[in-house]
Design a protein around this nucleic acid. Structure first.
Lengths: 339, 339
DNA sequence: CTGAAAGCGCTTACAG
DNA sequence: CTGAAAGCGCTTACAG
C-alpha cells in the first residue's frame, strides 16, 4: 500500500520477483517512454511494472545507476561565499534549472582564496560531478587552463574570463548606465568604489563607468577610483578614504549594493545626507536596496537568470557543444539616493 | 608522474595490476590506519601501495564505495531559502563541519512551503542521503513524526520542535535580553515585529520578550505584537501598521535584522529619527547591522556554530545515540539605534 | 517480447 | 600476509 518500509529500499530485483519476470525487463520498461513501451515489453507487462513501481514508491538507487552509466547527474558549484546574497540568489537559479533537467547540485565556498578554490575543485572531482559551475574566477592567476587541459566540463558564472564560456551580467553596460545617469543629473566630481581588482564584475563595472564618463567629457583625477572589498565594511572603508581626500565628490558609484550601504554609513558619519549632499548608486539591486531608509539607486542584474543560464550553458558543454557566453542586460533603478 | 589523465579515473584494479597484487589487498591497505598496516598487508607492500596511490592521485569512486557500504556520506539540508543571510551562514557552518568528518552536503530551498518541504525531503531520500538537517520546521503541521516513523535520521536547525533534536539559539533568552534592555532605557510603550507564527524562532523571541516585559511590570496592549514576514519588506509593512495605530511606540523590537531595517525605513518615512524618536532592536546581528547608516542594536546569535552543532547532533543520531538538543547562548549588541 | 550475462568499482568476510 | 569470491543495484548489448 505504498508505505515506505524503513528497512531497505525496494530494488529492481524486488519488483521483478513480485511480478515473476526478469529484472532487466523491469529496467527496460522503466527507462522507456511512458506512452509507447516501444519494444521494451508488451503493453500489458509494461503496465503491470509501472503500476507496481508506483504503488511501492520505487526509486532507483542513484549510486548504482551512476556506477553503471558513468554519469552522476551531479553538478559542482563553487562560489566565493554563499553568505553573499548575490551568489545565494544565483544559486537558487542554478538549483531550479538543475532540478528541471534531473541534476542535483553541490555548492561550496572558496572564500575567493586561490588555494581553497583548487582544493574545492578536487573535492568536487573526487565526488565525480559531471560538470562544474565556477563562480569565483579570478582574472589573474587561475585554474581554468588546467581544467580545460584535463577536459573537465565547466562554465563560469557571474565573473567571466576571456576564452571561457560564462553566464554573466553585461557589467560594462551596467557601469555605462551609471555614468550616463550621474552625468545627466549634473554631477561632475565623482568617485568609484571599485571592488576587488581580480573580479571581472568589479573591473567591467568600473571600466564601463570610466570609459563612458570620459566619453561624456568627464574627468576622473587620481584617487577617484578606490578598490575595495565587496562587503559593507569594505564600502565604508573605501568611502572614508574618499572623504578624507581634498574635496568630497558629489556622487559615489559603488559596484556592489553592500559596499554602497557601507558608503552611506560613512557619508552620514561625516554629516552628509545621502541623496542631497552626495548621491550614491549601487549594483545588483538586491531586495534591500529599495527598502533602505534612504532607498538606494542600483543597477539591476538578473541574478537568478544568470544562474539558470549557467546551467543551460553547462548542459551544452556536457553534450560536447561549443557554447557561446551569455551576457545579460542590466537596467538602472533610480531612487532617492541619487534622484 | 601524478598527472591527471583525462580519460578514465584510475581504479583499485589499476593499482593492483601495476603492483602485481590483488585488488582486495590494495583496498585493505588503503582502509587501514596509515601508521600500522595492522594485518592488512606487509609493511613493505603497504608502503608500495600508498606510494603508488599518492603518485597517481588515486581517489576511490564514491558511488562504487557507497553501493558496497550502503552509506553515501551525503547530508541533505533543507532551508526556507539560502538567500536568507542567516541560513546561508548556518549552511557555511554545516559545510565546514561536514567536510571535517568526511561528509558532503546537498542544500535545497523549500520557500517555507509545506508541500515543497515534503517534496524536497523525498528528493533527498531518493538521493540516498545518510541523514537530513531540517532548517524549515513549522510548529503546526509538519512532516517530522512521519520521518521518525520511517526511521529517517534527521535533526532540526535554527527552528526547534518539541520532541525532536535541534540545534538553535536560545531564542527565548534573546527576547528576554531585549525586554531588559528597553525597559532599562526607560521605554514603556513598545511594539514587537514578531515574524512568522509558524517558526519557533519568531514565537520564542516574541515569547521571551513578552514574558520578561510583563515580569518587569510592563504592559503590551492589543496591537503591540504584529506578526510579519522575516524580510525587509515584511518589516516595513508591520511597522507601517504599528505607526498607523493611535500612539506610536518609543521602541520597536523586530525579531530579525532585515525586518528591523524595513522598520527603520518606515520610521524615516514618518519623519521619525531612529534612536531618537523611536528605538529599534533587531535579531541575529548580521554583518550589516553594525555598518548601517544608523547602526542597529541586535541580538547576536552564533549562526555558524548553530550549523556546526547541527552536524554534530546528526553525527550522533547516525551512530544511533539519543542526542540532546543544543540551545546556544545569545548576547545583545547595543548600538545607536537604541542607545 | 523477454531472459541471461556481464560488468561498473568497490569492500568484506573467508580461506589458506 | 594475501588471494579469490561474492555481491551492492543497476543497465545494456546480445540471444533467442
Amino acid at each position: 500500500m505504498g508505505n515506505n518500509t524503513t528497512e531497505r529500499a525496494v530494488t529492481l530485483k524486488d519488483l521483478a520477483r513480485e511480478l515473476g519476470i526478469h529484472p532487466s525487463t523491469v529496467s527496460r520498461v522503466l527507462h522507456s517512454d511512458p506512452d509507447s513501451a516501444r519494444g521494451a515489453a508488451s503493453a500489458a507487462t509494461a503496465r503491470r511494472i509501472r503500476e507496481l513501481a508506483a504503488e511501492v514508491g520505487y526509486s532507483p538507487d542513484p549510486q548504482a545507476t551512476s556506477l553503471r552509466t558513468r554519469r552522476t547527474q551531479l553538478l559542482g558549484v563553487i562560489v566565493p561565499r554563499l553568505s553573499d546574497l548575490v551568489l545565494a540568489i544565483m544559486y537558487e537559479g542554478i538549483e531550479e534549472a538543475a532540478a528541471a533537467i534531473g541534476y542535483s547540485a553541490f555548492v561550496t565556498n572558496s572564500h575567493d582564496d586561490v588555494a581553497e578554490q583548487r582544493r574545492q575543485v578536487e573535492i568536487m572531482l573526487a565526488r565525480r560531478v559531471d560538470g562544474l559551475i565556477i563562480g569565483d574566477s579570478h582574472l589573474d592567476v587561475d585554474v581554468l587552463p588546467e581544467l580545460r587541459d584535463r577536459a573537465v566540463p565547466f562554465v563560469l558564472m557571474n565573473r567571466r574570463h576571456p576564452g571561457f564560456p560564462s553566464s554573466t551580467c553585461d557589467d560594462t553596460r551596467g557601469g555605462e548606465l551609471v555614468a550616463e545617469h550621474l552625468w545627466a543629473k549634473g554631477h561632475r566630481r565623482v568617485s568609484v568604489i571599485a571592488g576587488e581588482p581580480y573580479a571581472s564584475t568589479a573591473v567591467d563595472r568600473t571600466g564601463g563607468f570610466v570609459d563612458r564618463w570620459h566619453a561624456l567629457g568627464g574627468e576622473l583625477p587620481d584617487g577617484s577610483i578606490v578598490w575595495s572589498r565587496f562587503d559593507t565594511q569594505g564600502g565604508r572603508e573605501a568611502a572614508e578614504k574618499i572623504l578624507s581626500a581634498r574635496s568630497a565628490p558629489t556622487a559615489i558609484f559603488a559596484v556592489n549594493d553592500f559596499a554602497a550601504i557601507g558608503a552611506m554609513g560613512a557619508l552620514r558619519s561625516h554629516g552628509m545626507i545621502v541623496g542631497q549632499d552626495c548621491a550614491v548608486v549601487g549594483y545588483n539591486d538586491t531586495s534591500l536596496a529599495a527598502e533602505l531608509p534612504i532607498p538606494l539607486s542600483s543597477v539591476r542584474s538578473p541574478m537568478a537568470e544568470i544562474g539558470r543560464q549557467a546551467v543551460g550553458l553547462l548542459e551544452g558543454v556536457l553534450r560536447g557543444e561549443a557554447v557561446e557566453s551569455v551576457r545579460l542586460e542590466p537596467s538602472l533603478q533610480v531612487r532617492e539616493s541619487s534622484a
